[in-house]
């Protein structure tokens, strides 16, 4: 049996492990448009952080082009949008198109106040997942993860 493992020498956590570090999923979180309800977005940011992801938090009043630029520069793996303005049927598909046009194969997950009957329409428009009000932390993390996995084929 070996004496001491990797842990012994890395105790204190201030050294990089030998080979490549594990992949960290990076997610851009934003509110698209004018609506200012950011409680949900902030809670989701913390949920994703606590599940080990890196959240690039854009916060309020983003446009599709500011989100596209962030995805490119941050090499993000997914985009999470929160919508409480009843504009999701316009803005959700617009986001998907903007990413598409920029050649970014990054899944879009939408949460917020989305009536169940609009969910189908959003999914048909290319949105990867829709999280309704009251989605649990596990559901949030799982839907983001599986959207990323699915997008990579």
């Amino acid at each position: 049996m070996p004496f001491g493992g990797v842990r012994d020498i890395y105790r204190g956590g201030n050294r990089l492990s030998p080979a490549q570090t594990p992949e960290r999923l990076r997610v851009v979180l934003a509110k698209l448009g004018l609506d200012g309800h950011d409680r949900g977005l902030k809670v989701v940011a913390r949920i994703l952080r606590d599940s080990g992801m890196e959240v690039i938090f854009l916060g309020l009043r983003q446009t599709t082009s500011s989100i596209v630029a962030a995805v490119e520069q941050e090499d993000a793996d997914a985009v999470g949008l929160s919508m409480h303005n009843a504009g999701h049927l316009t803005l959700g598909p617009k986001m998907v198109r903007a990413l598409d046009e920029a050649g970014l194969d990054v899944p879009v997950v939408i949460g917020g106040i989305i009536p169940p009957e609009d969910e189908r329409q959003l999914l048909d428009a290319g949105v990867a997942a829709v999280l309704g009000p009251g989605a649990s932390a596990t559901e949030v993390v799982e839907s983001v993860r599986s959207a990323i996995v699915a997008s990579r084929g």
Binding site: R24, R49, V55, G59, E74
Partner: peptide, 30 residues
């Protein structure tokens, strides 16, 4: 968790013209 919330873009967002490159980097515990 090793995760992070990177919020610096917002503070720059308002004044920074297009074409600027902003990359958020987490210390990743090491």
């Amino acid at each position: 968790s090793g995760g992070a919330i990177l919020g610096d873009r917002i503070r720059m967002d308002d004044v920074v013209p297009e074409g600027t490159f902003v990359r958020s980097m987490a210390t990743r515990g090491h």
